[in-house]
Each structure stands twice: as structure tokens, then as C-alpha cells.
Simulated assay, not measured.
Amino acid sequence: MDAEQPRWLDERELDAWKVFSAVMLKLPAALDTQLHRDSGLNQFEYLVLAGLSESPDRTMRMSTLAILANGSLSRLSHVVKRLESRGYLRREPCADDGRYTNAVLTDAGWDKVVAAAPGHVETVRSQVIDALEPEQLDQLREIGLRILHAMDPGFGCTEGI
């Protein structure tokens, strides 16, 4: 057989990968722990509520919200159902195109995300932002965009999140 050999990581690449892997594991856990402790939400639920809170009329198509929250439409549907049962949002047909469903943040949902935001921002600040120099923040953004583009070529290297 003429199988290609794996492109093994060299020592420098492996070291960088191990550090990055540790961040990928520890940071979501830290964010989830804080959000759950302080507001009874997980990070995905918070992203859904925060995304809606920043949308015009606190409304967004479910398909767009799934992209914003970085989840599948199926996962989003389960989370939306749970948030809907808690009174934080509701679903309704899209007025522009009835084939789509919108998620709409309720007043209770607004209050929930407003109450959750300060603790979440403090955790993001203490765990990430404050650990970096300003130029490192720019580098972190660029690195993140490059990785996202490698994972999803439709995600342009210059577009924001």
C-alpha cells in the first residue's frame, strides 16, 4: 500500500497544541460553572439569550440564531424549548416568510440576560481579557479568525463574530 504518512507534530507544534487544548477544555467549563452558579444558565443558553437581546426587536430567525450561538438547529430547538418553558423566549412564525420560525426574547428573558451579563463579563475578563496585553488581544482575535476560517472556509478571515 502507498498510504501517506501522518504529518506528525514537531515539538513546538505539539507544545502549542497542548496549551490550546487545555484552554479549549478549561475555559468553557469555567464559563459554564459561573453562569450556572450565578444564573442557572449554561453558556449555550446564555449565548442564545444574549444574541436575541442584541437583535432588533429582540427577534431572530432560528436558523440565524443557531449560527450565532454556534450550534446545530436541532440543538438550538431543544434549548429554545427549555428556555421557552421558563418564559425567557417564545417562538412565532416569521412575519416576512412564514416558512421560517423566529425566536423572540420576552421581558423575563431580557431581565434574565441583563442579570446574568455582569458575572459572565467579569469571568470573561478575569479568565481571558485581563491576562493579555492589548496587542495580544488583537493577536487572539486574528488567531481565532484564522482557525474558524480553516474549520469553515465560508467564515471570512476579516469578518467579525
Rank of each mutant, 00 (worst) to 15 (best):
Gly154Thr: 15
Pro134Tyr: 14
Pro134Phe: 12
Leu41Asn: 00
Glu4Ser: 14
Glu4Asp: 06
Lys112Arg: 04
Leu73Phe: 06
Gly160Thr: 14
Gly156Phe: 00
Glu11Ser: 14
Gly71Trp: 00
Leu89Asp: 01
Glu11Asn: 12
Ser85Thr: 06
Asp130Met: 11
Val19Ser: 10
Arg37Asp: 13
Arg75Gln: 15
Glu159Ala: 15
Gly156Asn: 07
Glu4Phe: 10
Val48Leu: 04
Asp130Glu: 14
Ala115Lys: 03
Val121Asp: 04
Leu83Phe: 00
Asp57Met: 06
Asp15Glu: 15
Arg86Glu: 11
Lys112Glu: 05
Leu52Lys: 04
Asp111Tyr: 14
Met24His: 07
Cys94Glu: 01
Ala30Ile: 01
Glu11Asp: 08
Leu35Cys: 04
Ala150Lys: 04
Leu27His: 03
Trp17Asp: 10
Arg75Cys: 15
His36Trp: 11
Arg12Phe: 06
Gly51Gln: 01
Asp38Lys: 01
Ala150Phe: 14
Arg146Asn: 12
Glu92Asn: 03
Ser74Phe: 02
Gly144Arg: 10
Thr33Ile: 01
Asp10Ile: 14
Ser85Ile: 07
Asp15Cys: 12
Glu45Arg: 02
Gln136Phe: 09
Leu148Cys: 11
Arg99Lys: 13
Leu83Val: 05
Leu89Val: 04
Ser85Phe: 02
Arg90Lys: 07
Val48Thr: 13
Leu52Val: 06
Gln43Met: 11
Ala50Met: 05
Leu14Thr: 10
Pro93Tyr: 00
Asp15Tyr: 08
Leu132Cys: 07
Leu14Cys: 11
Tyr100Ser: 04
Ser21Arg: 05
Arg125Val: 14
Asn42Glu: 12
Ser74Pro: 00
Ala117Gly: 03
Ile67Gly: 15
Arg99Ile: 11
Ala95Lys: 09
Ser53Thr: 02
Phe20Thr: 04
Thr158Asn: 15
Lys112Phe: 08
Asp10Cys: 10
Lys26Ser: 13
Leu52Glu: 03
Val80Leu: 13
Trp8Pro: 08
Leu83Glu: 00
Met60Ile: 02
Ala16Leu: 09
Gly144His: 05
Val121Phe: 15
Val113Tyr: 08
Gln139Pro: 10
Lys112Asn: 05
His120Asn: 04
Gly144Phe: 06
Thr101His: 02
Met151Cys: 07
Glu135Tyr: 12
Leu27Val: 01
Gly144Leu: 07
Thr101Glu: 06
Leu68Met: 02
Ile67Val: 15
Pro6Asn: 10
Ser21Pro: 11
Gly71Phe: 01
Val113Glu: 03
Lys81Asp: 10
Ala117Leu: 01
Ser85Trp: 01
Arg90Cys: 08
Thr158Ile: 14
Thr33Ser: 05
Cys94Pro: 07
Trp8Met: 09
Ser39Gly: 00
Asn42Asp: 15
Trp17Ser: 06
Ala131Arg: 13
Pro118Met: 01
Met60Ala: 00
Arg125Lys: 06
Pro134Ile: 09
Thr101Lys: 12
Leu145Val: 12
Gln127Tyr: 02
Asp2Leu: 13
Met151Lys: 05
Ala131Met: 14
Asn70Ala: 12
Ala69Glu: 01
Ser85Lys: 05
Asp15Met: 14
Val124Trp: 12
Asp57His: 13
Glu84His: 08
Tyr88Gly: 08
